[in-house]
Nucleic acid binder design. Structure first.
Lengths: 337, 337
DNA sequence: ATTATTCGTGCAAACGTTTGCGTAAATTGA
DNA sequence: TCAATTTACGCAAACGTTTGCACGAATAAT
């Protein structure tokens, strides 16, 4: 188990002091060309790189950021994490990621762990029922935070997400265009912001097409297959059943597909279905699922960029709200002849 | 932005020296009961916890472990990560995770990042084509590493995985039991150990049932939908097409399902299909996919445990190889009347 | 009353790095 | 030749924590 080389090792080898090595490594002008050359060569030979802990101690910064997401198994989040890591790495930051598994309790524990790890800031996408946001407000009093995707209006900070309203609008417009007359919205938890934004887009589209919003066609469920399927079954069994469903996520949409099949309804002829996120799974189910695509990686990159900008800003930082456009991925589940 | 309280702050408030505070916080017997009490109260009041960087500097340990997996979007890996984080957190360790995205080049960069972050050890599951393992051997000369799931015979370290041979064996036995006469194996890259172990199980089952192994029925593909579908199409178009397919992963199995549908073959009547990993997606596709289930979370926990044990061992640590049993999840894709 | 023991606490060094300041030697200018 | 300047480097402190050692005071033993 080889010990890492330190500045002192180089100093001893070259025969100068540690401070000279430190300066030479950054090519300081007050060090002679010759010394710089030999120090840098020795450093490379010893495979030297600075000890993170020592730097942290000196600068009160760890150059580490935390990420808390509901579940990395959702490809939206693992792809966003990819973007986050890319941006962080580019700027010399390390990322520590953790999953709340949609539990607020676990999210709180994650926040505590992040504090103890001494991160410089945290990127968060909220768990589905996170409503008591005290843990985040408290965290925010100690370090910058940035919310992405699953954000909240009750926290004043930078936020990155897609234009959920517009995304939902385009999905519902698409359903109407292929001939749907009664369109349902399978929403998420009632207090979840993205769920309500998408509901706005849903309503706007109906309104624009002079269709009225029927509250019975708006059902709430959790982000799980069984919860979605149960809700969809109830919806599709009602006498005035919908002939189109816009679901808050692909997994919920797939729950709806399962319900439709159970009731022997044809997709998309009897009921067309469209989801949100455009996860790989959407292309793999049968019939393949239309969906609203989010630029997950870009969202991750931008979220990380804003967080790091804020960490490195010396003056007061004004929160930035940034939203991206979505794109429809049309597949079999909404392809009518 | 509140600064974190330090031992010095407590010392000043209580009116003792920093060393006394340090000892009092751990309830050292050489400090008076009274001092201990007031110090601990003050610490709690100030929300004190020790500065990680300072401890790292002192002990040459960061209490951080790294994790490198092919893709966190595979639920096997995100679930394993869950287990890893649980065990790490229990033992006071922080986890930094990164994805190789199945690219050896990225895996190498990840390894370098890990070294720079100063982790105490690394957990790795290999990218699909990782063959040049120099980066791992070099890493191993500096810190303990543990491989899990996608392991290699060419590295001498602790390894955790499922009994791939037995898992494959049971899957093929199942196919035979439901009446399959010609069973294909859709394998992964040729040098991937888990792929070959599963091939062993496949062959063993055929042998036990007095069926001969036909090399034409063993095809190699990548872990992507298109690669799998292409391979399956070729397989299913051949005149002697198989009536059963055992695939190295669920995604590959789903590629095979797509190919079968394209050729208007019924699943499971014309061709029965079984995958590996039992990802959530297996239950969601239609027909639902039978699969070999791995205890992902337990594997993650055990891998983390072994790594941390090794990090904390003062003497030479003998590598531990541990394998877990799999369980069949039987679904529609192998349910014949 | 004197010495030995125990108890409670503080001092200082160490970990690796940076940086303001000081200083010897080399160079310049007259 | 001597003063003024420049060049090239070293010293020491600081960041937060732990820990071996020392030390004063109180207590116990003689």
């Amino acid at each position: 188990m080889m010990k890492q080389a330190t500045i002192k090792d180089i100093a001893q080898l070259v025969g100068v002091s540690a401070s000279t090595v430190s300066r030479a490594l950054k090519g300081s002008p007050e060090i002679s060309e010759e010394t710089i050359k030999i120090v840098q060569e020795t450093a490379k030979r010893l495979n030297y790189f600075p000890n993170k802990a020592a730097l942290s101690l000196l600068h009160f910064k760890t150059r580490t950021i935390g990420v808390i997401v509901p579940n990395l198994g959702y490809s939206f989040f693992s792809t966003a994490l990819e973007g986050i890591e890319e941006e962080a790495s580019k700027r010399g930051y390390t990322v520590i990621a953790s999953q709340s598994l949609e539990s607020e309790e676990k999210e709180i524990r994650n926040v505590i762990d992040m504090k103890r790890s001494g991160v410089d800031g945290v990127l968060i996408s909220l768990a589905q029922y996170s409503s008591q946001l005290n843990h985040l407000l408290e965290l925010q009093s100690q370090m910058p935070i940035v919310l992405f995707d699953r954000v909240s209006d009750n926290i004043h900070c930078s936020k990155i997400f897609v234009n959920n309203t517009a995304g939902a609008f385009s999905a519902v417009e698409h359903l109407i265009k292929i001939g749907c007359k009664r369109i349902a919205y399978m929403a998420g938890p009632k207090n979840l912001l993205i769920s309500n934004r998408r509901k706005d887009g849903y309503s706007m589209s109906l309104y624009r097409n002079k269709m009225k919003v029927d509250e019975k066609l708006i059902v709430h469920c959790e982000f799980s297959h069984t919860s979605a399927m149960r809700a969809a079954l109830k919806l599709l069994k009602s006498k005035d059943r919908p002939d189109g469903i816009f679901a808050i996520s692909d997994r919920v949409a797939i729950g709806a597909m399962a319900a439709a099949k159970k009731l022997n309804l044809r997709i998309p002829e009897d009921v067309a279905i469209i989801g949100f996120n455009d996860e790989p799974i959407a292309a793999l189910v049968s019939p393949s699922l239309s969906s609203v695509r989010q630029p997950a990686k870009v969202i991750g990159q931008m979220a990380a960029k804003l967080l790091i900008d804020q960490i490195e800003a010396d003056k007061v930082f004004t929160p930035v709200i940034k939203s991206y456009m979505t794109r429809l991925s049309i597949r079999e589940s909404t392809k009518r002849k």
